[in-house]
Amino acid sequence: MTGKVRTPGRPEIARDLIGRVEAAAATWRASAHEREADPEGIGQAPRHAIAADAQALRRIVARLSGWPGRTLVGDDGCQAALTIALNSDHDLAFQLTLLHLLAEAVRRGDATTAQWAHLHDRCLVRSGRPQRYGTQYWLRDGQLEMYPVSDLAGLDQQRASVGLPPRHDQAVLLKQHHLTEPGRAGAASDAPAPALGERTAA
């Protein structure tokens, strides 16, 4: 990646994506008590927000005939699209479609390999397979646990190949960011809510 795209070509789409992620984060924070009573630790309000955001992203990729990349929605819009994709766990087929579109965007220089790696890992975990880059975590009983990886010994090398920091360095940041929110359980990745975990570099 050669630098940040400062002015999105489609600022209205960028605002929509970013606004949805910010609203989802607010909904997540506001639903703490509801989530504690939810068997899956999500809650009805966040579930509805996730479904609505996924439908919005589905419409956007159809309208654009591809991933909303940096050229059209800027760095923040592209990251917001990834957040929504990561949170769309209710529709693995859609996530796999988005993974393909994101890979095309990476080839065009319109998204980062780190962003692709996060969604790739997410799809693997949701398919019941070990992840490759160690981006997906499980928050349980106040502790972050990494989902199984296919090559633990070579994990840092795999991470470096897609522009991710070493596992240990990222684990420190993850703990600082996510272990301050009580009562939370569930999948962890790089999205602010309801998925949590490491941030991708633009």
Results as ranks from 00 to 15, higher is better:
residue 173 L to I: 05
residue 151 D to H: 04
residue 149 V to C: 14
residue 80 A to R: 02
residue 71 T to W: 03
residue 171 A to L: 13
residue 124 L to A: 14
residue 177 H to E: 12
residue 165 P to I: 10
residue 96 L to G: 07
residue 133 Y to R: 02
residue 83 T to F: 15
residue 117 A to L: 04
residue 100 H to C: 10
residue 133 Y to Q: 01
residue 72 L to I: 04
residue 181 E to A: 13
residue 111 A to F: 09
residue 99 L to K: 03
residue 119 L to M: 05
residue 132 R to N: 03
residue 94 F to P: 02
residue 161 S to K: 10
residue 96 L to I: 15
residue 70 R to C: 02
residue 130 P to F: 01
residue 154 G to P: 06
residue 87 N to V: 02
residue 147 Y to Q: 09
residue 70 R to W: 01
residue 139 L to P: 11
residue 170 Q to K: 10
residue 91 D to S: 09
residue 184 R to C: 07
residue 137 Y to I: 11
residue 162 V to C: 05
residue 61 V to G: 00
residue 176 Q to I: 12
residue 129 R to K: 13
residue 72 L to Q: 06
residue 124 L to Y: 00
residue 69 G to Y: 06
residue 127 S to P: 08
residue 93 A to Y: 00
residue 118 H to M: 12
residue 64 L to Q: 05
residue 171 A to G: 07
residue 120 H to A: 14
residue 163 G to T: 05
residue 94 F to K: 01
residue 131 Q to F: 10
residue 85 A to Q: 04
residue 90 H to A: 14
residue 119 L to I: 06
residue 163 G to R: 11
residue 109 G to M: 05
residue 90 H to P: 07
residue 70 R to H: 02
residue 138 W to N: 11
residue 126 R to N: 14
residue 72 L to A: 06
residue 156 D to T: 00
residue 78 C to Y: 03
residue 157 Q to Y: 03
residue 149 V to Y: 10
residue 67 W to F: 07
residue 59 R to D: 04
residue 139 L to D: 06
residue 111 A to R: 10
residue 112 T to M: 03
residue 140 R to Q: 15
residue 143 Q to L: 15
